[in-house]
């Protein structure tokens, strides 16, 4: 029983990170109807940025979060204005935006290989080995911090979407971009902003990942897949959906160690995806994601 509780707490902690990771992908899809295949590449790039800031400039990864998020916001806006803007959206443009953003991912990976080689890197701070005790089990301090920061990020995002004028504009465009134009919302600006915010969230996820995992330039494909699984499980547009999706995935992954060898846990997300598609093709909440 004690072991089950310990694993359950691990799963909850992991789910926090997963939620912040999936939110960026879900936000961009919800508003632009474009799946950002470069999402995983952005997470990887941001992990490296966090690593560079730490090793070269001695900036603690948690303090680096604002810097990284601003950088990635700008990158995201630039990517929208320079590339994504030219593509048709919706069903007709699905394949094109997919392949284009896939190309961007390959380029990011190549740049990372050139700059940092293929070796594994990790951010090791003085408190990397510190731990905290919860219900008699000890957990790494980093994992708890990542969980708390993820919760804060998701909450702030939700407040922004529901309370501010800009956030409401983003939601309006999600609902109906045509009518949004009629009521005076600059849809192009909302698109650029959303791509920026979504990419900034990938940046956040990358910094958090850099404190938890070792990474190399091919890091991120698993994160992309997991983000996607979470969105399919939980649906778009609600924090609850993302949270449930993240929890289901993290619990499945953590408790899978009872059933499958550890190297296969990476495949759990995919198996879960297939199972959900067979049992409930419309997602756990009958989400509109799958047309």
């Amino acid at each position: 029983m004690g072991q089950v509780l310990a694993l359950a707490i691990s799963a909850v902690l992991l789910a926090g990170f997963y939620a912040s990771m999936a939110y960026g992908l879900g936000l961009i899809y919800g508003v632009l109807r474009v799946v950002n295949l470069a999402h995983g590449g952005m997470i990887m790039a941001s992990a490296y940025l966090s690593w560079v800031l730490f090793t070269r400039f001695n900036i603690d990864p948690y303090l680096a979060i604002p810097i990284v998020m601003v950088v990635f916001f700008v990158v995201g806006v630039a990517m929208y204005k320079g590339l994504v803007r030219f593509l048709p959206r919706g069903a007709a443009g699905g394949v094109q935006s997919l392949l284009l953003l896939f190309g961007v991912w390959l380029v990011i990976r190549n740049i990372a290989y050139l700059l940092f080689t293929g070796d594994d890197q990790a951010v090791r701070t003085s408190y990397s080995t510190a731990s905290i005790s919860i219900f008699g089990n000890s957990y790494s301090l980093n994992r708890v911090l990542v969980f708390v920061i993820s919760l804060v990020a998701v909450a702030v995002l939700q407040l922004w979407l529901s309370r501010t004028y800009t956030g409401k504009a983003v939601r309006a465009v999600t609902e109906n971009s045509g009518s949004s134009t009629l009521v005076g919302i600059d849809v192009e600006r909302v698109y650029a902003l959303t791509f920026g915010v979504g990419t900034a969230l990938a940046g956040l996820a990358g910094v958090l990942a850099s404190t938890l995992f070792a990474f190399n330039p091919s890091f991120g494909s698993g994160e992309l897949l997991k983000s996607f699984v979470i969105i399919v499980l939980g649906g778009l547009g609600s924090v609850v959906g993302i949270a449930v999706g993240a929890l289901v995935l993290s619990f499945a992954e953590i408790f899978a160690i009872y059933v499958v060898p550890s190297y296969l846990t990476a495949a759990v997300g995919f198996v879960l995806l297939v199972v959900v598609l067979v049992v409930r093709p419309s997602g756990l909440f009958g989400a509109k994601v799958l047309r």
């Binding site: 799946v35 992309l224 897949l225 495949a267 995919f270 995806l273």
Partner: peptide
Amino acid sequence: TLRLRGPYFSIATIGVGEA
């Protein structure tokens, strides 16, 4: 997975490949 269309199918295939 072929019930999925477009980007969703594509991402699922990334999972297939990796697994």
